[in-house]
Amino acid sequence: MSEQQKVVRDLVQQMLAETGLTLTELARRAGVSSTTLTRFMNKDVKHTLSMSTLGKLSVASGVSVPMGMALPGAAAAATARPPAETLAIPKRGEMPQDLPVYGTAQGANGEGAFVINMGGQVDRIRRPPGLMANRDAFAIYVEGDSMEPRFEPGETVVVDPNRPVRPGDDVVLLVESPEPGQPPKAYIKRLVRRGAERILVKQYNPPREMEFPTAAVKKIFRVMRVGELLG
């Protein structure tokens, strides 16, 4: 085990100790892959966790990432954001647990489709600092493996109905069900092209593109990025 891996593992152990969560629970609250986190903590792996993953874990646990931690992407993050902003992450207890989760799995059916229960919450998670004034954002739990390795089963993603959507964005689409009386199906995909007649998206597992009639797509929500969640 490298010294870098040891430092990161010790940090994750601190997060577990301070929150009282298991690895799986911490991963779910942070919106990261529980498989990746468990493998890193329990197996002899050659990699460490990225700054993106540690940022999500930090928000979920309230444990700050120490300044100067030399991890993949750390140099770019330091250049993009002043050190004072990087450390300005509120403690876990300071983040209200009021961000609604509307996603509930109904089976992947080979396409990664599930249902968003907009009529009622299925859970609530901690509100990230970047969403303190945003009352429209909500979260969903990813089900199925159609977007691995970008999103894995059990991850939490946050969407904002008010954010503009562009090709290249990860999105959640609400598509009208072909079965009368059934709620729209929700898909988490990567947007390729959005036209007047057809909307083209892609998935990673297995790699394929899917088209939907534009008229059948009731809503498109953009998945928020880590930097947006941290504010």
Rank of each mutant, 00 (worst) to 15 (best):
Thr24Asp: 14
Lys218Trp: 08
Phe151Tyr: 14
Leu200Met: 14
Arg193Leu: 12
Lys185Ala: 05
Val115Glu: 05
Val101Gln: 00
Pro167Cys: 14
Lys202Gly: 04
Arg190Lys: 13
Val165Lys: 08
Asp169Thr: 10
Pro167Val: 11
His47Cys: 01
Ile89Cys: 08
Ala108Ile: 10
Asp44Asn: 13
Leu71Tyr: 10
Glu25Cys: 00
Gly55Asn: 01
Glu197Trp: 11
Met210Lys: 12
Val45Asn: 04
Gly93His: 13
Gln4Tyr: 09
Arg126Trp: 07
Met1Glu: 10
Pro90Thr: 06
Met118Gly: 06
Glu25Ala: 14
Arg190Trp: 02
Ser58Ala: 13
Glu25Gln: 15
Ala60Phe: 02
Pro128Ser: 08
Met41Asp: 05
Arg193Pro: 01
Met41Pro: 02
Gly62Pro: 01
Leu99Asn: 06
Pro128Arg: 06
Lys46Val: 00
Ile199Gly: 09
Leu173Tyr: 07
Ala80Met: 14
Met118Leu: 09
Glu111His: 03
Asn42Ile: 04
Ala215Glu: 15
Ser52Arg: 09
Arg126Cys: 04
Glu111Met: 14
Thr214Cys: 08
Asn117Trp: 11
Phe114Thr: 02
Ala27Leu: 02
Ser61Leu: 00
Leu71Trp: 11
Ala27Cys: 01
Leu21Arg: 08
Leu99Gln: 11
Tyr141Asp: 01
Ile220His: 02
Gly120Tyr: 12
Pro184Gln: 11
Ala17Thr: 04
Phe212Pro: 00
Leu229Ile: 03
Ser52Cys: 10
Gln121His: 12
Lys43Gly: 02
Arg222Lys: 15
Leu173Ala: 14
Phe212Leu: 06
Val157Asp: 00
Leu191Val: 10
Pro129Leu: 13
Lys185Gln: 04
Ala137Lys: 09
Asp160Ser: 13
Ser2Lys: 10
Arg208His: 02
Gln182Tyr: 05
Ala108Leu: 02
Ser2Phe: 09
Tyr187Gln: 01
Val59Ala: 12
Tyr141Leu: 01
Thr214Gly: 04
Val63Lys: 10
Lys43Cys: 07
Ala137Arg: 09
Leu131Ala: 07
Thr22Phe: 07
Leu54Ser: 05
Glu94Cys: 07
Ser146Asp: 01
Ser64Ile: 12
